[in-house]
């Protein structure tokens, strides 16, 4: 059985840096170094595990993003993915999640797929809805937010830990899945993997290649507008006491003062 897996990965500003907004109220991508979204490493890992368990499987990593997003692809290739596709176009600047889902859906169709694997959310925008939108656009089942996933006999099965219940979900391929950070630690690229990644093919696509008009994406195509972005005032440092036997009592007195006790 052959299995074509496409993993969607996003290049995001490092969450441990001082992230901020640019003048047009989009994410400032120059303010902080970028990297492969940590939550998408879990997607790459699960895709590789599924591929390793399946005869004739091929893993393609896909990103829509600026030139530097090639770093995210390179990292995924060094983890073990076979090839990469990079959708890059100046007109993509400021695209909202609905627009991004259009771009990725067209790209996934261009690549050809049996299974699309996504992360649970991007660590910057973090809406966590792209996989559902992708499934809606591709008109295939969504099996999302999985803490366990497996593929067998043309079906994908997974476990979803929801707020109210844990469910076991199953769908026939082709399908879109997303995996959470509970799905298992992602591997580190080996030295061999890093060297091999340099020779793996990366296909570059622009909007024209995907038959998408500039008006359908970008800031102009977005269906929402950010009106303002305000830095939350730093919390003013509260009182800090060192426990010398009275710490518990002091804290209780503070809580009582605020009417919590």
């Amino acid at each position: 059985m052959s299995l074509r897996i496409v993993v969607c990965v996003k290049y995001v500003p490092d969450a441990t840096g001082d992230r901020s907004f640019a003048e047009d109220l989009t994410t400032d991508r120059d303010a902080v170094d970028g990297l492969l979204s940590e939550l998408d490493e879990y997607a790459v890992e699960q895709a590789l595990q599924i591929a390793e368990a399946t005869e004739g499987a091929e893993v393609t990593v896909l990103t829509a993003g600026p030139e530097d997003a090639a770093d995210a692809l390179r990292k995924a290739l060094s983890m073990g993915a076979d090839k990469a596709v990079h959708v890059e176009d100046d007109d993509l600047h400021g695209t909202d999640v609905l627009g991004t889902s259009l771009v990725l859906a067209k790209a996934v169709e261009h690549i050809g797929y049996d299974l699309v694997v996504c992360g649970m959310a991007s660590t910057d925008g973090g809406m966590g809805v792209l996989p559902a939108l992708l499934a809606e656009r591709l008109r295939v089942p969504q099996v999302t937010l999985l803490s366990e996933v497996s593929v067998a006999d043309g079906k994908v099965t997974g476990r979803r830990d929801g707020d109210a219940a844990t469910e076991r979900l199953q769908a026939s391929l082709p399908a879109v899945v997303s995996v959470t950070d509970q799905s298992g630690e992602a591997r580190y690229p080996s030295f061999k993997g890093i060297m091999a990644a340099k020779k793996k093919p990366v296909e570059n696509l622009d909007l024209e290649d995907l038959d998408i008009e500039a008006e359908q994406v970008g800031l102009a195509g977005a269906a929402t507008a950010v009106l303002s972005a305000t830095e939350r005032p730093a919390r003013t440092a509260g009182e800090i006491v060192h426990d010398e036997g009275e710490g518990g009592k002091l804290l209780a007195a503070f809580l009582a003062g605020r009417k919590f006790v």
């Binding site: 919390r235 800090i240 060192h242 426990d243 518990g248 209780a252």
Partner: peptide, 21 residues
């Protein structure tokens, strides 16, 4: 950096004392 009130100390001493209080 975030707290309104902070206790520097061993939680196994402070938290049970807080609960009792």
């Amino acid at each position: 950096e975030l707290v309104d009130y902070g206790v520097v100390g061993d939680l196994f001493a402070v938290v049970p004392a807080l609960t009792e209080e």
